[in-house]
Simulated assay, not measured.
Amino acid sequence: MEHSIFVMCILAVLSIALANPIFQDFSQLKAVENANKVLQLVDQEVLSNHKLGQQSSLPQKIDWREKGYVTNVKDQGQCASCWAFASAATMEGQLFNKTNNLITLSEQNLLDCAKSYNDKGCAGGWMSHAFKYIRDNGIEADGTYPYTATKQECSFNEANSVGTLQNYVKLTKTTEEEILKAVANHGPVGVYVYMSSLFMGYKSGIFEDDSCTETPNHAVTVVGYVNTPQDQYWIIKNSFSKSWGEDGYMRMKMNKNVCGITYRLYYPIV
């Protein structure tokens, strides 16, 4: 049943792309992202016992871009490597927190080398598997291991590693309150969302899509939020280049579980 559902998702997005040229640039990417589900990658990692810090009053606004935790928006190209981009983005923030040095990490390193951790390169993957790879091996910077948008033979050089992690946190079927706590107390976090037609065609404004109810299939990074009486939204960093959305970012409506944002939550402990 699960297999047939995800095949139907692929067929549906392809039909949308054929019917509306605005989505054709994303059709191959979307099909491959959904194919990740057909592969039925199983993320079975036991939850980390790391506890989120508790605050009696969380800040109403936080934007980790303003605090130096976030690198420039990147472009995954026609490769379902969103999992690698979100993993790298959360690591970049935590390495900055530890070293006060913002380094652009290598998604290609993860794409090529995390195969033995059950990630599938341009056919999809899980952030938790990427974190296991980084924990055991380290990760290079993009400068020494640049992105090509195609899977290649692993050429990781341990001498070029710029960071590792001790552990990671994974929350399954969580709540937006828990995401809020994690972003406020920890920094940028990785989540999965469903790429609906409206999501793919997003240009600006606070995004909301009541029809976006399929199982999430695309990894993004939450780099901040606004939670005031006037506005409530997440600040989402995507990996579709600066030409997508608001210079590569999306403001997503909070407290409505838009596109299944509560499906998975990940962040590293450096």
Rank of each mutant, 00 (worst) to 15 (best):
K181T: 03
V189S: 05
S243L: 14
T144L: 11
E158Y: 10
S196E: 03
C212M: 05
N227I: 01
S204P: 12
M254E: 04
S204R: 14
V226S: 10
Y147H: 09
N227Q: 06
G205N: 10
H218D: 02
V193S: 08
A141C: 12
Y147E: 08
G201V: 01
H186W: 15
V189P: 07
T213W: 01
I134K: 12
M250V: 00
K181S: 05
T148K: 14
H186I: 15
W126I: 04
Q230M: 11
Y192G: 07
K242C: 07
Y145C: 11
A159S: 15
S204I: 03
K132Y: 04
A219R: 13
E153T: 13
I235V: 14
T228E: 00
N185F: 03
M200L: 15
L171Q: 10
T172I: 13
V220N: 02
M252T: 01
T215R: 13
D247E: 14
Y233T: 00
K151L: 12
S211V: 03
G248L: 14
D210F: 01
E158K: 09
K173I: 05
V189G: 02
F240A: 08
K151V: 14
F156Q: 06
N227G: 08
K253W: 09
W244E: 01
N217M: 07
D142M: 11
S197C: 06
S196V: 06
Y225C: 08
E153Y: 06
G190D: 11
N238D: 03
G190Q: 14
T215P: 02
Y168A: 09
T144H: 11
G248T: 11
S204Y: 13
N217Q: 05
T215W: 09
N157H: 13
V223N: 07
T164I: 01
T148M: 11
F207D: 00
Y145E: 03
V193Y: 06
K242A: 13
Y194K: 01
M195K: 07
N217F: 06
K132F: 03
Y192I: 08
N160H: 14
I235E: 15
